[in-house]
Design a protein around this nucleic acid. Structure first.
Length: 446
RNA sequence: UCCUCGUUAGCUCAAUUGGCAGAGCGAGCGGCUGUUAACCGCUAGGUUCCUGGUUCGAGUCCAGGACGAGGAGCCA
């Protein structure tokens, strides 16, 4: 008997097959029982008719607990009434074997749940269609990331997770004892190592978990999140933006192409996503500041006026990013931030030392920053000066300074937060649903 | 760290001025041949977050605490 996966069901119409999975839902109507069975690849309705089965089996099916694991045999038929994913096909049950009857106290009702309850039961919550869809989009995003980078000359170089000190000297890090060497810190970025790697490989990327111990409690923050960081030699800020827009375009198009069912499950309006292809609008920080002033002057709402309060030199807050991105249909680049709000290694703007060659990419529909990057300082003397200005220990950065002494070149790179990207593509409002087991300031379970 | 809010059945929530602890969903049993969050009937299910106080009487008022959420700052 052919064992098939639900995602392939349309190829087996009128054939007798076996499906292995779990009972997601059960409803019955006298002599009919409908089981909604999921197998990881999709959801399919299986129908038991009393007249077709011996009485003991029918009774067993009629009382099978939710989430029981089963093996079901029957023939596939097309039927527009059948729910499921992809839907429109159902299996007429000829035989069913219960692998394990689930306990009758399964806690996840097929309704909405509060945040705390859902997160406490993350190990079960992920079985539900919305979470199944989001996490499959995530898998598509990570595949698209590797695909584009691998196809465009970027070599994957894994950077260390245990690191000797702060990468940028600002954010709070998780620390752990490290033998006789004092404390080691969980990586908050692989960028500095990437900068070493480009001198050997030209274009590289690292892709892995990243850790920030900041007590951020917002819908945009996790303490453990995944970041991809490409870095390219012989690339200036304009070149970096070209890379970013091709990269993002590829990711969006892969998701639209490969995840239509998932996006439909999430009721994502894809018309906005379909407009996402490069080139993206580019505005300077100065222009963004003017735009914000203009928007603040135009609004009548005093609350909005206060939220949009802004002075040159500030970094953008979430309300500023939302207001800015609402003016555009595509992701928008904001480049040339004030040097004082950015990291020490960013190349100054020619003739304007108060501004640096940095660029953030803001996603539309209010999702805000998904990529942050810059052209890096390539002059060894300037880099040393910046280290001193930021009170960073020169010895710890000796290897990093070496990179500017032996064949320094203009180079640039950026980081993209996977969870923020997936949130945007899925149209959900909190990034904790975009990673299988989210780590937040208040949660390390399960 | 700061500001705001919340905690009542397995889940989502209601409970009027301080006056008998409720509903829907979920679970169990029964009914129905096309359900889409089916529907109908019955049953079970409670330390109202904790501690103390006021009161004849507290889910409700007061004080303290615990836990959680949203936002700010910081960032991806």
């Amino acid at each position: 008997m052919t064992i098939i996966r639900v995602s392939q069901i349309s190829e087996y119409v009128d054939q007798e097959v076996t499906i292995q999975g779990w009972v997601y839902n059960r409803t019955h109507k006298g002599k009919l029982v409908f089981l909604l069975v999921r197998d990881g690849s999709g959801f399919v309705q299986c129908v038991a008719f009393k007249g077709d089965l011996d009485e003991e089996l029918f009774e067993q099916i009629a009382h099978i607990p939710q989430e029981s694991s089963i093996r079901v045999i029957g023939s596939i038929r097309a039927d527009g009434r059948a729910p499921g994913m992809p839907g429109g096909y159902e299996l007429g049950i000829k035989h069913l074997e219960i692998i394990q009857a689930a306990g009758e106290d399964y806690p996840m009702a097929l309704k909405e749940h509060g945040v705390d309850f859902a997160l406490e039961h993350r190990h079960l919550w992920m079985r539900m269609p919305s979470q199944w869809a989001i996490l499959r989009v995530r898998a598509t995003v990570t595949r698209a990331i590797r695909e584009w980078l691998d196809n465009n000359g970027f070599v994957q170089m894994d950077t260390p997770i245990l690191t000797p000190a702060a990468c940028e000297g600002t954010t709070t890090l998780f620390e752990t004892p490290y033998f006789d060497e004092g404390m080691a810190y969980l990586a908050q970025s692989g960028q500095l190592y990437n900068e070493a790697n480009i001198f050997a490989f030209g274009r590289v990327y690292c892709f892995g978990p990243t850790f920030r111990a900041e007590k951020s409690k917002t819908r945009r923050h996790l303490t453990e999140f995944w970041m991809v960081e490409p870095e390219a030699a012989f690339t200036d800020l304009d070149g970096l933006m070209e890379i970013e827009e091709q990269f993002i375009t590829h990711i969006v198009q892969c998701v639209l192409r490969d995840c239509p069912n998932e996006l439909k499950t999430l009721e994502r309006d894809t018309t906005r996503l379909e407009q996402v292809c490069g080139p993206f609008p580019r505005i300077s920080y100065d222009e963004a500041a003017d735009l914000l002033k203009q928007m603040r002057d135009e609004t009548e709402d005093p609350e909005q006026k206060e939220l949009l309060a802004f002075e040159w030199g500030m970094d953008f807050g979430a309300p500023h990013e939302t207001a800015l991105t609402n003016r555009f249909d595509k992701p928008v680049f904001v480049y040339g931030y004030p040097t004082q709000v950015k990291a020490f290694y960013m190349e100054p703007w020619p003739g304007r030392p108060e501004v640096c060659k940095s660029v953030d990419l803001l996603a539309p529909e209010g999702y805000g920053e998904i990529c942050g990057g810059s052209e890096r300082i390539s002059d060894p003397d300037l880099l040393l000066e910046r280290l001193h200005q930021h009170n960073l220990p020169e010895e710890a950065f000796a290897w990093y300074l070496d990179l500017r002494r032996y064949g320094s070149v203009p180079h640039s790179g950026f980081g993209m937060g996977v969870e923020r990207c997936v949130s945007w593509l899925c149209g959900i409002d909190h990034i904790r649903e975009t990673i299988p087991f989210p780590r937040t300031i208040k949660r390390v379970y399960p």
